[in-house]
Lab assay of single mutants.
Amino acid sequence: PDLGLTQLFADPNLIENLKKNPKTSEMMKDPQLVAKLIGYKQNPQAIGQDLFTDPRLMTIMATLMGVDL
């Protein structure tokens, strides 16, 4: 199971919303991170391994779920 990750990354406004959010806007200036996020739309399971190697993803996930870290 993808634990709902498919829906989190399926939002067509995902990148724009993250660019507008004060907690994630600075991160979204990294083209490699943006490319990763776009890739998760097609393969949400890929985030599982990346969560352990890129701490920014935890902040992004929390933001998408509405959790304040």
Rank of each mutant, 00 (worst) to 15 (best):
P1T: 14
P1A: 11
P1V: 15
P1G: 12
D2N: 12
D2L: 10
G4N: 15
G4P: 14
G4T: 15
G4Y: 15
L5Q: 05
L5Y: 12
T6E: 14
T6K: 13
T6S: 13
T6F: 10
L8Q: 04
A10W: 10
A10N: 13
A10P: 02
D11C: 04
D11S: 04
D11G: 04
N13F: 12
L14C: 05
L14G: 02
L14T: 06
I15E: 02
I15N: 01
E16V: 07
E16A: 09
E16Y: 05
N17R: 13
N17G: 07
N17F: 15
L18G: 00
L18F: 02
L18D: 00
K19S: 09
K20R: 13
K20S: 13
K20G: 10
K20V: 09
N21V: 02
K23D: 05
K23W: 09
T24S: 03
S25A: 14
E26L: 08
E26W: 07
E26A: 10
M27S: 03
M28T: 02
D30A: 01
D30E: 03
P31K: 09
Q32C: 09
L33K: 00
L33P: 00
V34D: 00
A35I: 10
K36R: 10
K36Y: 04
L37E: 00
L37D: 00
I38M: 14
I38K: 12
I38H: 08
G39F: 14
Y40I: 10
Q42P: 03
Q42I: 10
N43H: 08
N43I: 03
N43M: 04
P44M: 11
P44D: 04
Q45V: 09
A46V: 10
A46D: 12
I47H: 07
G48M: 15
G48E: 15
G48P: 12
Q49P: 11
Q49N: 14
Q49S: 11
Q49C: 10
Q49F: 12
L51F: 12
L51E: 05
L51P: 04
F52S: 09
F52G: 10
D54P: 00
D54Q: 01
D54Y: 02
P55F: 07
P55L: 07
R56H: 06
R56E: 05
R56I: 09
R56G: 04
L57M: 14
M58Q: 11
M58F: 12
M58S: 10
I60F: 03
I60N: 00
M61Q: 02
A62G: 11
T63P: 01
T63K: 03
T63I: 15
T63V: 15
L64G: 02
M65I: 09
M65R: 08
M65Q: 10
M65N: 05
G66K: 09
V67F: 14
V67I: 14
V67T: 12
V67C: 08
D68R: 02
D68Y: 01
D68E: 04
D68T: 01
D68V: 01
L69E: 14
